[in-house]
Each structure stands twice: as structure tokens, then as C-alpha cells.
Design a protein around this nucleic acid. Sequence first.
DNA 1: TAGATTGTTAATCGATTAACAATC
DNA 2: TAGATTGTTAATCGATTAACAATC
Lengths: 210, 210
Amino acid sequence: MESREISQAVISRLPRYFRYLGELRDKGIERVSSQELSDIMRVTASQIRQDLNNFGGFGQQGYGYNVEYLYEEIGKILGLNKEHNLIIVGAGHLGQALVNYMNFERRGFIFRGIFDSDEKIQGTQIRGITVRPMQEMESFVRENDIDIAVLTIPKTGAVQVAEQLVACGIKGFWNFAHVDLHVPDHIQVESVHLSDSLMKLSYNILSHGE
Amino acid sequence: MESREISQAVISRLPRYFRYLGELRDKGIERVSSQELSDIMRVTASQIRQDLNNFGGFGQQGYGYNVEYLYEEIGKILGLNKEHNLIIVGAGHLGQALVNYMNFERRGFIFRGIFDSDEKIQGTQIRGITVRPMQEMESFVRENDIDIAVLTIPKTGAVQVAEQLVACGIKGFWNFAHVDLHVPDHIQVESVHLSDSLMKLSYNILSHGE
DNA sequence: TAGATTGTTAATCGATTAACAATC
DNA sequence: TAGATTGTTAATCGATTAACAATC
């Protein structure tokens, strides 16, 4: 059952719905119609209804959607009701910034281990978590039920590290290395290519055709 | 002239072409066909040709594309042949990480100023750049020909800071705050919503329908 | 019940892929 | 010239929007 795949375009929009619903909830608003949400979020009401109905009928005709309920349901769809165990590979500036960012933890994404090949920082702590040598990574992942590896290492090492982690049964990568990871189908990769993003901005800033 | 707008889907792929062409160039490879590039990049050859032809005929029948030339041309399309002056607003962990990341500078994105409302870090330096108080931001932007503002502040402050910067003539925002910025049409926003990205990964990790 | 608004089907739009004539 | 490969048009596919019957 549940044979139709839901498109990544839809999935990409869910966190945004989740965010706006959270804000409505925090304001104490109880119900919202697709049209009201459409006005706030600047997407069509049609798209909102279409998107939500991929996952079930969360609304009620003549009423709209219950904010609290829809918020909770989207949270569940996104897997935010479960804890995720993460490791971070690469304790440079970006790795440290991510570990220090509290909001991930609030959503159930818990950093369990930090790994780095630089001996000078091994043994130091970042937000109470010890930086470990790379040699310990594989056993750590196996023994601590790690779901997600965050790669904040230079691209040269990333492919090989990813291979190791695949062999240890990792489920997904949050990849900040500037390289495309090729992993088996059942393993997920979400890449954040910061320089690609900046280049896109650079393009859009140029005045085209006037 | 140049009346047709080029879709953001195409623009998003340009940095990736640029990256692969750079790698081919570094390997000393002189020419590449759309089919070869297709095999390496795992996109269709048709898409590559279609994408490139939005900007002009860079290839040659029977030969393919000259790697060096195409690399340079895509760089120009992305505006990488020009320097961009950036400021960063918010000198927290993420802000520091971005300032410290050398590769942006290599591509012509130069951090000129850092601003933060926290008096304790004002006056300190990050990679040789002094952290300034927010009050100095507007005049700094006006006097230093700043194109891009990188927002690494909490979402509560972001909207108001963005408004100020729009009034100072900023061209674009690289927005890491967890909020959607609404700015006039001629101003560009490229958002990096890290938690959205992580939630998407979380969804994809769940085993759906088996 | 009447009004409101969903869930869902149908229509449109845009993006991707295929095909092939042009041409190096 | 013959072979290769582009540039570009046509066909397909998928995603978005519109419309409306179902129903609370």
C-alpha cells in the first residue's frame, strides 16, 4: 500500500507549512482555511490543499483546518516525533556552528558524536561533546544507533567517509561538502551546497535584459 | 532584448555545471560532449544542451564543448567575474563560520563588514574584520558599495534589519534566518533554511510504504 | 438549512526528454 | 566527405492551478 511516491517538490514545502502553522499556533489561533494560509504564505490555496491531501484529509469542509492538529500531523509526517541520532564529521567552523545551534536539538536531532582528523582538536569539547578521532567513527556509529551523518569536511575526504558510513548502516547524509555523494538507493542525501546558493544569488542580482 | 526570463530551475543547475567543468579543467581535459557530461553528472544530455542554449551556443557540432571556454562563460553568466562586496549581520557561530570560509573570497565574494548587536563582541576581529555595532550598518553599506547582506541573525530581528538594508540600496540577501523576507521585486533573496533542509532529510529517511 | 470550505477531478502551464535537421 | 554532436523543435511528462461536487 501507499504505492504512489510523493514528489520532492511537495516534501520541500512541508517544513514551510510546519513553520507557519507553528507561528499561528503560538499566536493562539485555532483554525485556518486554505485561503487564509494562502494569503499569509503567498502560495495558492489550491496548492496547499493539493499538498496536504497527499497525506490524508486533515481538514473539514466548511471549517478549514485545525491549526494545532495540522501542525502535529505535519510534524509526524516529517518524522519530528522521533529522535534522530546524529554525528558530525568535521569539527571546523561550520561543524561547530551546527553543533552549537540549539534549534535542531529542540526538534529531536541530537548530536551524539563529533569526529575530526585533526589531532590538535581531538579530545576537546564542543557543547559538551568530545571531538573523537576518525578511527573511532565506525564503531561509534554501530554502537550508538546513529541515523544521520553531517558532513562538514572538505570535499576531498567526503566521498570516502560516506562510503565508510554507508557500510556502517547510516540512513542519511546531511552533506555540506562541495561534492555530490553517490550512495545506494535506500540511503538519503540532502546536500547544502552553500557556494551554489551564493552563485545563484549572484546571478539573480545581475540586471538581466534591461 | 533578452525578453524571456530564464527559469530558476535552470539557474540552480548552473553552479553544478560550473563545478564539474572546473574539475574537468583541473584534470587538463580540453573538450567534452553533452553525452560525456551527462554520464558524469547523471543528468540527461538533452537537459545540458537545453540549459546551455538559454545563454547562447557555446558548443560546436561534431566537437562538443571546449571545457575551459564553457567554464569561463558560465562563470561570467553567474557574475563570478565581478567582485561582490558583502556584509554579514550576526556574528554568532554561523556568521563566523561563513566569514572564515575562504572559498567564497576565491570566487569574488568579499566580506567587508561584520555587524552584531552584542556589545561584548563589538570591536573584536574575525579574520581581520572588526565586528561593528548595528548602528553603523546603514552608513557602512552606503559608503562601501555593498551588494549583498548575509543575515545570520535570529529570525526576530531579520525582517527589520532587511528593511533597513533595502532602504540603503542593498541588491540581495543571503538569508540564513528562519523567516521569509518580503522585499521589493528588484531585490533578490536567496534563503538557506537549514532546519527545513534537515526536516526534508528526516522525511526521506523514514521508510514509506513498505 | 444555507454558507463555507474541503477533497478531488479536470485543465493548464512549464519543465524535461526525445528526435532530428543543421553543421562542424 | 562521413561521422559526430550540437542547437532546436516537437512530444511527453509532471506539477500547478482552476473548478466544482461533496459535505461539514
